[in-house]
Design a protein around this nucleic acid. Sequence first.
DNA 1: CGTGCTTTTGAATAGTATCAAGGCCGGTGG
DNA 2: CCACCGGCCTTGATACTATTCAAAAGCACG
Lengths: 240, 240
Amino acid sequence: MVHISCNTCPTDACLIKQYCSPQWLNIVDQKKYQTFFSPNLNVFTEISPVLGIYFIQSGIVKILLTGINDKKQIVRFAQKGHFFGHRGSKDEIYGISAVSMEDSLICFLENNILRNMFRENQDFAIGLMMYYSQELRKMENRLKNISQMNIREKIAEALVLLWDTFGSNSKKEINVFHIRDVITNIAGTNIQQVSRQLSDFEIEGLISRGGKKISILNIARLRTIIQKYNQLIILENRSI
Amino acid sequence: MVHISCNTCPTDACLIKQYCSPQWLNIVDQKKYQTFFSPNLNVFTEISPVLGIYFIQSGIVKILLTGINDKKQIVRFAQKGHFFGHRGSKDEIYGISAVSMEDSLICFLENNILRNMFRENQDFAIGLMMYYSQELRKMENRLKNISQMNIREKIAEALVLLWDTFGSNSKKEINVFHIRDVITNIAGTNIQQVSRQLSDFEIEGLISRGGKKISILNIARLRTIIQKYNQLIILENRSI
DNA sequence: CGTGCTTTTGAATAGTATCAAGGCCGGTGG
DNA sequence: CCACCGGCCTTGATACTATTCAAAAGCACG
């Protein structure tokens, strides 16, 4: 059984580490379930207790919803320090699931412990609130994008998202299993369109395809394709 | 200048009323900005302080993002007791705006007051966290729907959403200004398609069109059109 | 009863999905 | 070592769906 203690855990982005008292870190250590997932395992059906929150020590997890005819929609990737799976006080969810994309160490806490944590570590509750509020904002923007982009742009956005999630400085190749299916489920289209569009992007010199792998050659130009959809409005900082 | 005190405010759904101490209700009363909006006014550019949170005493507000060529995407409606406009600690937003749909009384609180409220009213922070987490879940589902539904289904969903937001028991007519544009911006299509689809729905006896107004004749059958996209999975309530 | 705006409808066009065939690649076993 | 097999990938042809353009009809207001 794996167990990385919160005290020695190197995942500084974790809100629990950031905002909870040392005593509470110890409590979390005792109460959390920590499970290792090799790639392509369903997180939600793997850890037994279901009423609580999941957070990631290391690795990457895709959060997806299943629609008609088993068609998947990937809504986001969660990684180091991110939270997912919290479903409020009700026992209901919309067919959501979480699947590991690489070797991942996932922590889980039950709701009743979480509730006490909130009370005694207010900054943690605030931090988590901010986290959800920011995720909500991102999701709203993504809703707009999925609704307004054409296929070319949706696939460009999928590639950028994959690059930002799985890319590394050292190599251009994106190391994701069945990457065309993943792109399909991010962009909300079918695999043939993905294939066609990748072909176009290769001709344009933005990517290259070696066997089943995809390498990003020009991330900057991919970003410009979708730039106009993601322009931030920077507000002046006025007080009162 | 309108001012409804939190103590006498009848909006019980408001998390502030629900979870904050009597002392804090008084502080909020003094510090909140409360503004009346007649229909079709932009809330975000009307209240002067911009770093904080908005919540609704009465009325309905549409939350929308503006895309290319000024194309709008309505992401949700906020009403009595709902929160919106919170943008975390950064001064950045993605072109989001809020527009009143009917006579609305909107309250606003600055971030620094909010922060202190969180610390001294933990249940409020927790409640707001739950609120955002649930909104996030809804938005993820809507992302899937927008991505996978065809036009007919998207427009049915828009009608159901409008009915649930603006409908009343007493009359079948949905009283929304420029309702075809609103449907267009919810469903993410164009007004001609909306017109065609409304025409079909009228032939099928689901709605009727009197002048520019739309009445819902058979909300149940409209719901069945989109039912398969919104099926809840009810989980067994297991402990540990 | 115009005038200007919104709505509806038709027709043409563009965009996307589906179907089907062939190609490529890695693995396996003769 | 090579032939074959199965799974994935690519591409073309076709069907379908959605968007755009344009014109006519309807409605509200003076």
